[in-house]
Design a binder for these strands. Structure first.
Lengths: 126, 126
DNA sequence: TCCTTATATAAGTCATTAATTATATAATAT
DNA sequence: ATATTATATAATTAATGACTTATATAAGGA
């Protein structure tokens, strides 16, 4: 997982209809026409939401004759969410995508140019 | 937690700058001017992203003289993400916000009007 | 074959979000 | 007081996103 993938996944989750779709697919796989019935929105709207979920790799599709059944990738979803929490426990210095940010932060903390760190040393960096 | 809160939290997480801010605050609390330095974007942009995170209840602010230090609510974030995963394990019938959806789904499954469920009974509802 | 059903994609519109510039507020320092 | 620094809010614009209608594709049934 990298930042871009997490962003895409969280974006996919950040929409009420898609959260509903996920909750429904968590119960069982459903085809587009069933989601249409349940959710009461138009078929293209559903196809588009499903595409967003698929591009975030949170669902997979199974074509059965003329129908397409969508399945939730529950393991993947858990890996994404728990993975983000675990990632936050990695020290900033060890986060590959944050080396530039880490360097900037070190400068700020070590350099007495920054007034907000003067009076009493704040924060956990001693 | 309810659907609206989850939607708001996921929306707040679905943006690369906010993910970066969260990763930085996971290391230690930072004031707006420090985030400005590190992220290299304008101060109002940062304030606005912090507001989104605050409205999703993922950060808290500590005013120290003229500075405002932002802290990550890591426990809350974990509760949101793990809570969503746990919620998905609740049977649809027991999800209070999904009773209408559940009823619709039952109709679909019990009613032989729906062609896609005819050939072989698909899905886990037997 | 032709018609119907299921789904996807395209194009257009409207709403939401992100970023900028400008301004307001609050605290400190002179 | 006045000036400076830090932050927030407002207003505007630009970019995304969601939804609609229309159309394309694919499969099955008459």
């Amino acid at each position: 997982m990298n930042l871009k993938e997490w962003e895409k996944a969280f974006k996919a989750l950040g929409q009420h209809l898609r959260l509903r779709i996920i909750a429904l697919l968590a119960e069982q796989e459903l085809c587009v026409c069933e989601l249409e019935e349940i959710l009461g929105i138009t078929q293209p709207a559903i196809s588009q939401h499903l595409r967003v979920l698929k591009e975030a790799d949170l669902v997979w599709e199974e074509k059965v004759s003329q129908w397409v059944f969508y399945h939730l990738k529950k393991e993947k979803l858990a890996a994404v969410l728990q993975g983000w929490l675990a990632y936050l426990d990695v020290p900033l210095a060890a986060k590959k995508e944050f080396t530039a940010d880490y360097d900037k932060l070190q400068q700020l903390l070590e350099n007495p140019k920054v007034a907000c760190r003067q009076p009493r040393e704040r924060g956990s960096k001693e």
